[in-house]
Simulated scan of single mutants.
Amino acid sequence: MFNENVSIASLSTVTPPYVIKQAEAEAFLAKHYASKLGPKSLARMKKIFAHPGVLCRHIATDNIECLVNEPPDSRITRFTNWAIELSSQAINDSLAQAGLTKDTITGLVVNTCTGYICPGISTYLIEKLGLSKRIRIHDLVGSGCGGSIPNLQICKDMIQSNGDGVVVSVSVEICSATFQMADDLSLIVSNAIFADGAAATVLWKRPGIFTLVASASRCDTHHREDIRYIYKNGQLHNQLSQKLPAIASKTVSQVVMDLLTPWKLKPEDIEHWAFHPGGEKVINAIRNELGLSESQLQPTRDVLARYGNMSSPTVLFVLQEIIRKSIAPGDWCVMVAFGAGLSAHGFLLRH
């Protein structure tokens, strides 16, 4: 019954080559910003960076020293160049996996929240990859870490309204292009977990890896200030509330129920879970709220450890981790991402 629905034909994830371990990142911050941090913040920073939940991260630069006093113009140039490069790699890899060529693409949707350019990234990808100038394109901004799932929702709608089209979904974030440091716990935590990466998904109306069965979203604007970017002196600064684990876990739980109830499913019926790894405390809160086991959360924790939080592409890294392991015909998977707003978005998938 699901073969007539839109499915994921292939999925590719890409990171920049520069890798920094947590001890190196802490040393970098201490070298340049210790004089700006109070004793309490320095002690907190040491504890946060020593936590084994994140081991290393990929950063879109050849030299991390460029982050210190990076001029805004240089920063947006770095964002643009790396966003295009990583997105292009991910698209090419995903097309090759699906056995498709660029000429088959009828639509392209790109989401990001870590940089703004006009025209959007999609137009640069048309140029770099030599895509048809007549394909349908959309550039999405402002969805934060949850942005990849609204992207997939739009791609699904595009295909269902256009027969046998092939649509590519791209989530790309250069979180290092929003780097800031001050005596602020939000910034200390952000600089301990955020990283850069991209993911591209090829979608079509044929059998694939996972069928996009249903989606659900919730946005609780009452908690907007608990997770968002704010502008200070014309530059983005990440703002994270200490209440975030409790808030996010309840919203995620509501989205999960919105996905499962119409299909008469319960959490125990779901073989695979792909959550956005928003941090160790958030993962623990989701586990407790939904009553999941550690084994069900292992793909989420593994991605956080190896890559950190890359914002919107990260949940797709988790989904790829699940795909690489054993999935059986008929298996259910729930994918949920959450972020600025506070918003949470989910997809019910079936293999």
Rank of each mutant, 00 (worst) to 15 (best):
S35L: 07
V170W: 04
V54P: 05
L212G: 04
R306T: 13
M1D: 11
G291V: 07
C155A: 02
P329Q: 04
A337W: 03
T13N: 15
N309R: 07
K102T: 02
S217I: 00
D93L: 12
K128I: 07
L131A: 11
I322R: 05
A305P: 12
H272A: 03
S171P: 00
P262G: 01
C333H: 10
S295Y: 09
L319A: 11
V315H: 01
H237V: 10
C219Y: 10
E26L: 15
D220G: 04
M310V: 13
S312G: 11
A23H: 11
S311L: 07
A199L: 01
I323H: 08
K205G: 13
I48G: 01
S74C: 07
I126R: 08
C56F: 05
G146D: 09
S143P: 10
V336H: 12
F179A: 07
V252C: 14
I137A: 07
A83N: 02
D220M: 14
E280Q: 13
N3L: 03
C175H: 03
T104A: 15
A246W: 03
L297Q: 15
K281R: 14
R134W: 12
D269N: 15
Q160K: 14
S249Y: 08
E4C: 06
W204F: 13
P39R: 11
T13G: 00
K133I: 11
R224V: 14
S176E: 12
R287H: 14
I121W: 10
A83G: 03
N151H: 05
R218E: 15
E127Q: 15
I121H: 08
G147A: 14
V315R: 05
T77F: 09
A248C: 12
S343W: 00
Q97K: 15
R301H: 09
P245E: 12
L292E: 00
T261W: 06
I126P: 02
Q320W: 14
K156G: 01
G130P: 09
Q89M: 14
N69C: 00
G278W: 00
P71S: 02
C66L: 10
Y229S: 04
G234D: 13
A246I: 07
L86S: 02
T314H: 08
M257R: 12
A305I: 01
N238H: 14
P39Y: 06
A216N: 03
K250D: 07
G330N: 14
L100N: 12
L236S: 12
I154W: 05
Y229R: 02
I20L: 04
L259Q: 11
S88F: 08
W332V: 03
Q235P: 08
K281F: 11
L304K: 13
G341E: 05
E26S: 12
I137V: 15
V14E: 06
L125F: 05
D157E: 09
P16H: 00
R78F: 13
L140T: 00
G208P: 02
E289P: 07
L129Q: 07
C219F: 10
Y229H: 05
W82Q: 04
T80N: 06
R206C: 08
R136D: 12
A285K: 09
F49V: 03
N238E: 11
G341N: 04
S190F: 01
